[in-house]
Simulated assay, not measured.
Amino acid sequence: MEAARDVGAGDDQKHRRIVAHWPRAETFAEIAIEINLHSILVVLLSATYREYQTFHCSTIRMFVFDKLESVGDCMIKENSLKTDYQSLVESAAARIREMLIAGQFAPGQKLSEHQVAAEFGISRNTLREVFRLLTSQRLLTYVPNRGIFVAAPDEAAVIDIYRVRLVIQKAAVQAATKGHPALARMRLLVEKGREFSHLGEWRQVGTVNMEFHRAMVDLNDSPRLGACFDLVIAELRLVFGQLVDTAHLHEPYVELNASLITALDEGDVISADSQLETYLLRSERGLLAALQRARRPNKPIALS
């Protein structure tokens, strides 16, 4: 390394003369600097034009390509490690999103790095990358000097969530075809929703309802739309998580889901599209009203 620096400093003019007669030398020099193969640089900078004439070009070529092959192997291994690490981060983030959709984390809940890392079997550094990813997706919130908290979406977020739902789900209804596998899953989820409704398990009804709409989006046959909708549904669950009594928000939609799947099964896209639009508008208004009531400070009852 020191030799390369000395030669480069002392023989700059000689190097320029070599490059003038040997245009490929500049390319080799740039490669050598870029990948820190100083031994190649020493060969190029210390050679005179006369030495080059007697130095067989194939020898240099073999030397250079041997070095580049070793570097290439290292780069492939490094890229493989980066891919594995990124997959680990995305996998952990997906698991946390599923837990949010299932209602296992409460809005505003502080997440302990130590506990979550131990539960997922990953390092705390990896978990921080997961937290950064989920924060960028508006599912977590970072508070300086306090830590990471589960997000608590407000009314503005609800309006935007339903705007996105309308676009994606109307496209799904319009793309529906008879016999699509997603329709069978939607029918099964309607029955599960009825079962939980009869048991009064309203959180489970909400989870099944979200799965119903995820299945509907699968009618688009678009993994990208599906991934986008997963983020929307996870954020929506965090809105419902701020409410204590959600029975009135879930109960009417069990049979509305059944009506939707009936229209889709019959191929009546116009009816399904109209039902969905009314469904989402009603759901948005009901959720906004419930969220406002939940955030309204309790006023003492005046005694007469």
Rank of each mutant, 00 (worst) to 15 (best):
E195Y: 07
S87F: 14
D154A: 06
D218V: 15
L140T: 06
G226T: 12
R146W: 12
Y85K: 07
R203E: 03
I159R: 09
G200V: 14
G179E: 05
V208L: 02
Y85W: 09
E113F: 02
V89I: 10
H198A: 12
L166H: 04
V173D: 14
Q174T: 05
K192Y: 06
V205F: 01
R132G: 13
S222D: 15
V217P: 15
R203Y: 06
R185S: 12
A117I: 08
L139P: 15
F120W: 07
Y85D: 01
A175R: 09
H114V: 01
A117P: 09
V167S: 13
R214M: 11
V130G: 09
Q115V: 14
V205N: 03
V217E: 10
E155S: 13
V130D: 06
A118S: 09
E90M: 08
S112G: 06
A152G: 13
S136T: 15
H180E: 14
I101S: 00
V208E: 05
R165I: 00
I96L: 12
G200Q: 14
R124N: 02
E201G: 04
G147W: 08
L199S: 10
I101Y: 05
H114D: 00
G206Q: 08
H213D: 15
L199V: 11
M216V: 14
S197H: 12
R165K: 04
G200C: 11
L189Y: 12
E90I: 07
V173R: 06
E90L: 09
L188I: 06
V143K: 07
I159D: 12
Q86C: 08
R132A: 15
A215V: 05
E119P: 08
E191Q: 03
E90N: 15
A92I: 11
K170W: 03
R163T: 10
L225D: 14
V173W: 12
G121T: 03
G226F: 13
G147C: 15
F120E: 06
P223T: 13
G179P: 01
L225H: 13
Q109M: 01
T135S: 15
N209V: 10
G108F: 04
G206S: 13
M99A: 11
E155Q: 09
D160S: 13
T135A: 15
Q137Y: 11
G179T: 04
E191K: 03
E129H: 02
R128I: 00
L219E: 08
N220F: 13
L166N: 10
E98Y: 13
K178D: 08
V130R: 00
Y162L: 00
V143R: 14
M216F: 11
V190C: 12
L225T: 14
A156C: 11
V208A: 09
R187I: 00
G103I: 01
F105E: 04
P223V: 14
Q109T: 02
D218K: 14
V130T: 11
L111P: 05
S112E: 05
A93R: 05
L183E: 00
L127A: 07
L127M: 08
F120A: 03
A184R: 04
V150T: 14
I96G: 04
P153M: 11
S112R: 01
R132C: 15
L140M: 13
N125S: 15
Q204K: 12
